[in-house]
Design a binder for these strands. Structure first.
Lengths: 216, 216
DNA sequence: GGCGAACCGTACCGTACGGTACTGTGAATG
DNA sequence: CATTCACAGTACCGTACGGTACGGTTCGCC
């Protein structure tokens, strides 16, 4: 397996990044239907010809949008300190809140809708791209946290991916899908804190060692 | 609350049901793009004029497709017997497997993709419809099961919806979304059994009373 | 100043779709 | 037999989109 700090990202110019920003804005508040080449060109004050020169065709533009957005989401590593039962729980709750807020973000929802809409006809190219650049990244952060918890004797699990899968399910359940289907996300954002705490509490009951049973 | 055996379903004629079947077939193996009025008319051997007479417009056809498909999925109630720890677990595993298989179904995936694709522009009309007729129905089955378990002293929970939310998350996690994004569902279907058992086991560890700790 | 590259704005082309109108036909009804 | 109804088949219309071509403008470079 290759390290691939920069797998082969095109790394667009500032001007092109502006265009991609405009396109994302357009997608967010208009859906895919509003994302026509003409409207992108108009919104970004560029010509359609330039769009086709830079991104090849419409699908290239969509791929570029996903790659661009993913490059903006930096998954900071918040490890590197000795974990106690309290700090582990704290970090997990923080992770859960961040995850929920990322999933509820306008751009994330719009891009997921876009990729799902295209899943039937592009061989899930956009879908796997979103999966790779989105969930894998944030999942790595969780994985590091989980293994640190295990190393500190606070968590007990065999397979790390299984544990993360459980954690993810407890945090998100079908909330992501409901938001993708159009349920008003603004109304549920204020419950994210409580939801995160409940999910982490349940997760610790499942995977916490007896050593970490000093929870509220 | 009203009984509402027939809330206000249009209840289409057999001929129209055939048309809806053809439309669903078309949607499943071609995506939304393939679902043009002309192709539906051709596949169903009917005229476009009849389509518009019966369903109003394209959106009406889509709504009818969702309603039609939902009417075919009957959520049988498998309660009505004295629950023991073993039978409760058995019923929960059965429920989990059924849930996973429903979510992985071709038609379910296609309709969810369709509704998600339209969520941005129709005010989530299709989305709430799918939610209401799909998840609410199967959730009711789970709710009955959960309350029966509580009545038998095998489960302990305060809010039934919270418990169901947890159960759902443990069973599904992000698997539904991954399938919607195009990940090959056929490959993971054979793991549904193991997945269902693990999810139910975790759920019972969280919500099972000490009386029900006779698990494998 | 001359020149070429990059690019905007716009006009243009082919196609495909949603929706409507029209004609023909077979079956039921009187 | 005449009338009516429901429908298939098809032609048609307006529009909108993806993609291309072209004239005009700015900017850097020799």
């Amino acid at each position: 397996m290759q390290l691939a700090a920069h797998p082969h990202q095109p790394d667009y110019s500032p001007r092109q990044n502006d265009v991609l920003d405009s396109a994302l804005r357009l997608l967010v508040d208009g859906g895919e239907k509003a994302l026509t080449t003409a409207s992108v060109a108009r919104a970004a004050n560029c010509s359609k010809e330039s769009l086709y020169k830079w991104f090849g065709d419409r699908d290239g533009l969509l791929s570029a949008m996903i790659g661009f957005q993913a490059s903006k989401v930096r998954t900071f590593d918040d490890t590197a300190e000795t974990l106690t039962a309290a700090t582990l729980q704290e970090h997990l709750v923080l992770f859960a809140r961040d995850l929920l807020e990322v999933l509820a973000g306008d751009v994330s929802l719009a891009l997921n809708r876009l990729a799902i809409g295209q899943a039937s006809r592009d061989g899930s190219k956009l879908g796997s791209m979103l999966q790779e650049r989105g969930r894998r990244q944030i999942g790595k952060r969780a994985g590091v946290l989980l293994e640190a918890g295990r190393d500190a004797g606070l968590l007990v699990f065999g397979d790390r991916d299984d544990a993360y899968d459980t954690l993810y399910g407890l945090i998100v359940s079908d909330l992501h899908l409901r938001m993708l289907l159009g349920e008003d996300s603004g109304r549920m954002v204020k419950d994210f804190g409580r939801r995160a705490e409940k999910a982490v509490s349940a997760f610790l009951r499942l995977y916490g060692s007896e050593k970490s049973s000093a929870q509220s």
